[in-house]
Design a protein around this nucleic acid. Structure first.
Lengths: 338, 338
DNA sequence: TTGTAAGCGTTATCAT
DNA sequence: ATGATAACGCTTACAA
């Protein structure tokens, strides 16, 4: 464990001033004679010098860090999102600070404080929906914010990236209706989440478009964490007139729902047709292979990073942007004709 | 977008010196009158002041950041690891910089440079096995390093956390042998990875212990990324005397392997018995439910964070530690009696 | 082309 | 109990 050389050490060893070293470090920031540049480079190499990020940031906070605040990285959807965000960011030379809220507003508020103290250039987040004041504060200090997957309607000045949840749920439900199902249930995210609400909205649209009536008993919300998804399914199955088809629109709860179905001995698609919002490679391996709504995670990530960096890099009209990318309905074998 | 108040603004508004403000910010760093403390606190609140991390780090680089360098976060195993590491770190008030190498040494070297420039207090990583010199450099500047899941034997001064791969593969293979299987195949990670090698070693042990001979044609290595896992299985199935049982010991490739099996119309466990290294909740939902080796990701994460922070916090004997946690063989229904 | 010196926002060491 | 002030390592006018 040795003391690290500073820019001064380099300057001294190279027989130049720190300004010159700084200039070779940041090309374009000023003229340096070729010979000098070479000499300095060699010394840097020899000494194993690395400029210290903290000092650079302090001087003129360069946008080199992005905060990524997700609900839960163990959820494959968010995991893939994180993977793609990190790659996109890395390609632009910027680093990602990963935080998870576990859907807890208190944890979220702590993360937000940290983000403020770090003066990150941008934040990509799946907000819980709470902590409005802190979000505003973060915005005030000039942090570029992007909400991904969900949003907070009362924070309209934020960029949003996600799929068209209404349309996706509509097409999923529509598929079920087209296959002759009359009683279609849905398990979606919490009613407070925009995602959960939008998917229910799309569901209603499709049910009505099919000339059916929306039976509120068939509409269930499940919290993101815990066994809520399973309970919702159980409730659905215990109905006097249980559904013959089900839309599982809560990505976080898909496995919980399927586990309950399996334990109940429900065979898919004979007893129950199913279409789920999920990207996991495992869905294809199920018996039968599951019909799914696939979200283009790579696009979500790319747009998020782009937006998070757009304002900083000047290329932004200043107005908040909302990007909706199309989700794909992948038909496999978990839906039967009634 | 407004200018953020500094400690000086707070001092002025509160009618005290910056030193006093600093003291109320860092309790225990010096005496402050109760009345003064309250007044300063109020001003901080009113102004919405947040101390700037970059400045703090510059002064006396406090170990507030941990680097987490994983191969691939879209792999559920690493995703869950990341989730747990972030939680453990957060509980200790420290933040996580997430980076992915995609198993690429070049990308890894870039990540390492970044880590050096940031002067992170510690790094938790799944190393590619390359970039020895940079790893050493990182170590030289006093970064606490922990390798998780794999290791680099030629870097003995690094803490290592993982499961006992030899023993895990031994027990998985042993189970198959106990069920009467004579020809047992294995698909493991690349031969260069310690993980891949160890699992093969455990496999050999078990095969020999069962009084069988190791047929090298039944031993396959598959790269972490791409379709290598599937190809390995195909090769195995095309053997003159194909295996009746298979250990899939490459966590990153499990779905690829299963997909190939499924496409080949191989029914599990009738045609082929299978036990896989995998933690995904989906394994239980498969038909039949898969017998798996489950890695205690939470323990791996906890130990990793502890070790990464131990040296900094002084509580370390200085000697490199290796922690092996037990993996669990979860018997389900993908193994048949022969 | 190169050097000097003034910050950036904190913390820490002295005095007071 | 509080206040000046010197670092920390870097960038950047401005001078030379």
């Amino acid at each position: 464990m040795q003391k690290q050389p500073t820019i001064r050490d380099v300057a001294q060893a190279a027989g130049v001033s720190v300004a010159v070293v700084s200039r070779v470090l940041n090309p374009g920031s000023g003229p340096v004679a070729d010979a000098t540049r070479r000499r300095v480079r060699d010394v840097i190499q020899a000494l194993g010098y690395h400029p210290r990020t903290a000092a650079r940031e302090l001087k003129h906070g360069p946008p080199t860090t992005l905060g990524l605040m997700l609900a839960d990285v163990s959820n494959p959807f968010f995991a893939r999102l994180a993977d793609n965000v990190v790659r996109e960011a890395d390609a632009r030379g910027i680093q990602v600070l990963l935080m998870t809220t576990q859907e807890d507003e208190h944890l979220e508020s702590e993360c937000l404080e940290t983000l403020i103290e770090r003066r990150v250039s941008g934040v990509i987040a799946t907000p819980t929906g709470d902590n409005l004041d802190i979000w505003k504060k973060l915005q005030d200090i000039g942090t570029d914010m992007v909400f991904v997957d969900r949003s907070i309607p009362s924070l309209p000045e934020v960029d949003v990236v996600g799929i068209d949840n209404v349309e996706s749920a509509r097409s999923a439900t529509g598929l079920l209706a087209a296959y002759g199902h009359k009683r279609i249930g849905i398990v979606s995210g919490p009613a407070v989440s925009t995602t959960g609400r939008d998917r229910i909205a799309g569901y209603r649209l499709a049910v009505e478009a099919a000339g059916l009536e929306v039976d509120e008993r068939l509409v269930r919300h499940a919290a993101f964490r815990g066994a809520a998804g399973g309970d919702a399914v159980t409730a659905l199955l215990n109905l006097e007139e249980p559904p013959s088809a089900l839309v599982v629109a809560n990505t976080a709860q898909v496995t919980a729902v399927l586990r309950r179905l399996s334990h109940a001995g429900l065979s898919i698609p004979d007893k129950l047709s199913v279409v789920v919002f999920e990207d996991s490679p495992w869905t294809e391996l199920m018996t039968p292979p599951l019909t799914i709504i696939r979200q283009p995670v790579d696009l979500l990530a790319r747009h998020s990073v782009q937006l998070a960096l757009a304002k900083t890099s000047g290329k932004s009209n200043g107005k908040p942007t909302t990007i909706r990318v199309a989700a794909e309905l992948v038909e496999r074998s978990s839906v039967s004709r009634l």
